[in-house]
């Protein structure tokens, strides 16, 4: 049994091409490094991983809310708790992400072929705003009614209210629990892989790849 593409015909298969490109772009020591440059030992570099930690809490509590449903999280004590974990992890997610964004902006983090890392970060920020917004719309309480009726006017005024109908609870629920989590999750994975590939951006006055 062979495990590698040896013949030219095998080398043309898409699986071998993808594998070879992945091995070149992200060798194991780059994908899971155990050392980082000295300049990473700063609190400002902590907020990216803090954002991901908050995202894990958001997804985990969201899965529990999805399994149990509104009758559970509106009434029971445990449901209130999980609902609050979901809300507060979102609050922390955005606080950490904004500090991460400011830190990266002021160190011009798009330097050194990191433009796509910057762009995926921006897109994940925008998609997260959409995910949070649809979350407020599917609380199934008076707050969500108020937000949706106010947002309806705004979205109608820019011409997308008929397609993205914020008073359609079913549509907003599916965007919130399926579509936007997939988008945010995929972009965040892409963002992290790009950080692994190109390395953490050094401060403006530091030399790249300074070993500890």
């Amino acid at each position: 049994m062979t495990t590698r593409a040896d013949s030219p015909a095998e080398r043309r298969s898409w699986t071998s091409r993808v594998r070879e490109r992945a091995e070149v772009a992200l060798p194991p020591d780059k994908l899971l490094p155990d050392r980082q440059p000295e300049y990473v030992a700063s609190w400002i570099y902590v907020f990216g991983v803090a954002t991901i930690a908050a995202l894990i809490f958001i997804v985990a509590s969201g899965v529990v809310l999805t399994l149990e449903g509104p009758q559970w999280y509106h009434v029971s004590a445990v449901g209130h708790f999980v609902n609050s974990v979901h809300l507060w992890s979102v609050e922390l997610f955005f606080v950490f992400m904004v500090v991460h964004l400011w830190g990266k902006f002021w160190m011009a983090a798009w330097r050194g072929r990191r433009v796509m890392t910057w762009i995926t970060g921006v897109v994940s920020f925008l998609a997260s705003i959409g995910a949070a917004f649809t979350g407020y719309l599917v609380q199934t309480n008076f707050d969500s009614q108020w937000i949706s009726s106010e947002a309806k006017d705004g979205l109608n005024s820019v011409g997308i209210g008929a397609w993205f109908n914020v008073v359609n609870v079913g549509q907003m629920l599916l965007w919130h629990v399926v579509l936007l989590p997939l988008v945010v999750g995929a972009i965040v994975v892409w963002h992290v892989l790009l950080v692994r590939r190109h390395g953490v951006v050094p401060p403006l006055d530091a030399r790249e790849e300074t070993s500890p």
Partner: peptide, 21 residues
């Protein structure tokens, strides 16, 4: 208050020393 909290966190993240390994 949330915006003020984020600004304070940002400033602290820059000025506070990171624990030495």
């Amino acid at each position: 208050l949330v915006i003020a909290l984020i600004v304070v966190l940002f400033v602290l993240a820059i000025v506070l020393p990171f624990p030495k390994q």
